[in-house]
């Protein structure tokens, strides 16, 4: 039995594609959720400030919080992306291991 490297690479690529496709929607979904909740939060903060329900100093501190929240959101998205990449990479390695395993058994 010949080891067909091109066929194995094609199968590895297909395994990566399958893993990423389904999970990528999750990253997009999370990014949209973050964006929507930021919009509502900023609207709330602005309305509270305009109605003089919070003082200027307090308002500016909450805006400073937004920077930290954004930092957390970006790290959260990074985790999900890495998680997807990890699963895809391992699926490709599994394909390779399987192909070589079959070859060794012969």
């Amino acid at each position: 039995m010949r080891f067909d490297i091109d066929e194995t690479l094609a199968q590895m690529l297909s395994a990566i594609r399958d893993e990423v496709k389904g999970n990528w929607k999750m990253v997009k979904g999370n990014a949209n959720t973050f964006l929507q909740t930021r919009k509502s939060r900023l609207e709330l903060l602005a309305s509270l400030r305009l109605a003089n329900e919070i003082k200027e100093e307090f308002y500016l501190k909450r805006l400073k919080d937004e920077k930290k929240i954004l930092e957390s959101e970006l790290h959260s998205i990074a985790i999900v992306s890495k998680s997807i990449a990890q699963k895809a990479a391992n699926a490709a390695i599994d394909v390779l291991q399987d192909a070589v395993g079959k070859l060794i058994k012969l």
Partner: peptide, 8 residues
């Protein structure tokens, strides 16, 4: 806003 990124 701080909790959501951790949960997700």
């Amino acid at each position: 806003g701080f909790w959501k990124p951790l949960y997700l």
